[in-house]
């Protein structure tokens, strides 16, 4: 039940525009802790922007204007004094296309640990093994840890990215259409992982695939043209939608 869980992220009056385009309008929402929240909506409605404003990757866009408040654990991340690197480390990112670092498999997972100062070989070995197992990739790569990450299949690369993200011990996992470039079997592997990981992490998944949302979501934020149309528990969203736009979307009348 939502009212029993702690809120991890709280967003108030968030407005994001890039250049002259008003991407997100008056966003108010709450992300519950240790649940899978799915940000759902048709392409181009601002889902990714909403996700990226949570770990301030929107800072990289030129000409971006952000107003409003995003609180992580009750602290506003846009107040200027917070350490952005630290903030980002708390949120593992899984992007649409896997982006393995130009290094070998081992170092892809170890990189985050290394830059935060943990360099002992034995420790790194144990951690890398642990997180590769968590991402369900260990058995496939244990004999070639030192080959380039690019030599893996795209589905394996995505699981490697998951392991890499987990290795820095984040509190949240932000997944931006994490399965859109994968085959069905790899997609299922990622979905299953996310379902298991939600006991330890707060997970936010952006998707435009209704069926995926149905499979994994505990909580849904439905975005349309930069506005939140509906946000509620997944069961309520699918079984008892209130808004006309939601109903039309669920019928598949537009995409």
């Amino acid at each position: 039940m939502l009212h029993m869980t702690k809120e991890k992220i709280h967003i108030e009056n968030l407005e994001v525009s890039i250049g002259k385009e008003h991407i997100l309008k008056n966003i108010n929402c709450t992300i519950p802790e240790k649940k899978i929240t799915v940000i759902l909506g048709p392409s181009g409605c601002g889902k990714t922007t909403l996700l990226k404003s949570m770990n301030r990757l929107t800072d990289l866009y030129s000409d971006v204007k952000i107003n409003g408040k995003i609180e992580l654990n009750g602290k506003n991340i846009y107040n200027g004094i917070s350490d952005i690197n630290d903030l980002r480390r708390k949120m593992g990112l899984l992007s649409q296309r896997p982006a393995p670092l130009p290094m070998n498999i081992f170092n892809n997972v170890a990189y985050g640990l290394k830059i935060s100062g943990r360099r002992k070989k034995r420790y790194l070995r144990l951690r890398v093994e642990h997180y590769l197992k968590q991402a369900n990739l260990w058995d496939e790569v244990k004999d070639r840890l030192y080959s380039p990450a690019n030599s893996l299949s795209i589905g394996q690369q995505q699981r490697l990215c998951l392991a890499r993200g987990l290795a820095v011990d984040p509190e949240l996992i932000l997944a931006d259409e994490p399965t859109s470039s994968l085959d069905p079997i790899s997609s299922q592997a990622i979905e299953n992982r996310l379902m298991e990981l939600k006991n330890h992490y707060t997970i936010i998944v952006v998707t435009h695939a209704l069926r995926q949302a149905r499979r994994i979501a505990d909580y849904i934020i439905f975005l349309y043209l930069g506005e939140i149309i509906e946000q509620c528990e997944a069961s309520e969203f699918f079984n008892n939608p209130k808004n006309e736009i939601t109903k039309a979307y669920l019928r598949g009348s537009f995409n």
Partner: peptide, 17 residues
């Protein structure tokens, strides 16, 4: 690809790293 820098930043790396 920008995903690569975004992914690395998300691991807590600084821009220079």
């Amino acid at each position: 690809p920008s995903e690569l820098s975004e992914a690395t930043l998300s691991l807590g790396a600084t821009k220079w790293e």
